[in-house]
């Protein structure tokens, strides 16, 4: 489990609008990589190119290479659906399936992909995933209640449980805590620390402290100027980035002297 991602000179477009340009980086397995940068610089766009979710948007396309343990995800012979099974994603806004119960939400990935799974096996997977997402104790007595009836923070952890239930190699999280209270945020940060033993984790965050707390490596995205595509300014060990960045722009952004 857990694979390395290598990106080389990747461009992403929305129609004719180039959102990111010439991004290259290596994302190490069994670690947390954080993306930081001002709004609109293409962090979400880049994250979505890693599991081929970008092309779901009409008119959106990608140029360049993304290698997962050496295999090009954008090779013409690759089935995008299988890429997404291997690289799970948690969105900024919690989005549990409204027609499904808590149990069914967690089971959704497996049920929808593999069809029938014996009840006992499924019970085990659901319990493990909910425990993995630090949600089990809160919901174990109401697994058959609708997932949409949980609080925002619980819903987000439900979405994480849903994503890890299919046992992906990589977990992408787009601002998973932006709508959460400090306690839920802490629960999710603890969770990331725990999950990185098994998964490659990539997280987008606007919270510098969070990036400093949870990540091993950090990438700083920025726009050269308004209307230009976003780029990676600098990527390094998180401790180096936050104490001794190479680029002036990084230092300005991290210390809040931006723009």
């Amino acid at each position: 489990m857990s694979k390395q991602i290598q990106v080389s000179s990747l461009d992403a477009y929305y129609g004719s609008h180039k959102a990111i340009e010439d991004v290259s980086m290596t994302i190490e397995p069994r670690s947390v990589t954080a993306f930081i940068g001002p709004s609109g610089c293409g962090k979400s766009t880049f994250l979505r190119t890693l599991n081929r979710m970008h092309e779901v948007i009409p008119g959106a396309r990608v140029e360049g290479k993304v290698l997962l343990d050496g295999e090009d995800l954008y090779a013409t012979t690759i089935e995008p659906v299988s890429v997404r099974r291997m690289i799970g994603m948690v969105f900024q806004r919690p989005n549990p399936f409204p027609t499904m119960s808590i149990y069914e939400n967690v089971a959704a990935g497996l049920r929808l992909n593999r069809g029938r799974i014996p009840k006992s096996e499924m019970d085990g997977i659901v319990e493990d995933s909910l425990k993995g997402a630090n949600l089990w104790n809160e919901v174990k007595d109401r697994l058959n209640k609708p997932g949409a009836g949980l609080s925002g923070g619980q819903q987000q952890r439900l979405c994480i449980a849903r994503a890890i239930a299919v046992r992906p190699e990589v977990l992408l999280m787009d601002e998973p805590c932006s709508a959460l209270d400090p306690i839920s945020t802490l629960a999710i940060e603890d969770l990331m620390a725990k999950l990185k033993d098994q998964y490659t984790i990539v997280i987008v965050t606007h919270n510098m402290q969070q990036a400093a707390r949870v990540s091993d490596r950090t990438a700083f995205f920025n726009l050269a100027e308004q209307g230009k595509p976003g780029k990676v300014v600098e990527m390094d060990e998180t401790s180096r980035m936050f104490t001794n960045p190479t680029e002036k722009a990084t230092e300005d952004y991290i210390t809040g002297r931006f723009g």
Binding site: N51, R85, M89, F91, A108, A163
Partner: peptide
């Protein structure tokens, strides 16, 4: 919701 489902590889 569609994206959540796609992201699960459905």
């Amino acid at each position: 919701l569609r994206e959540a489902s796609y992201a699960l590889g459905v």
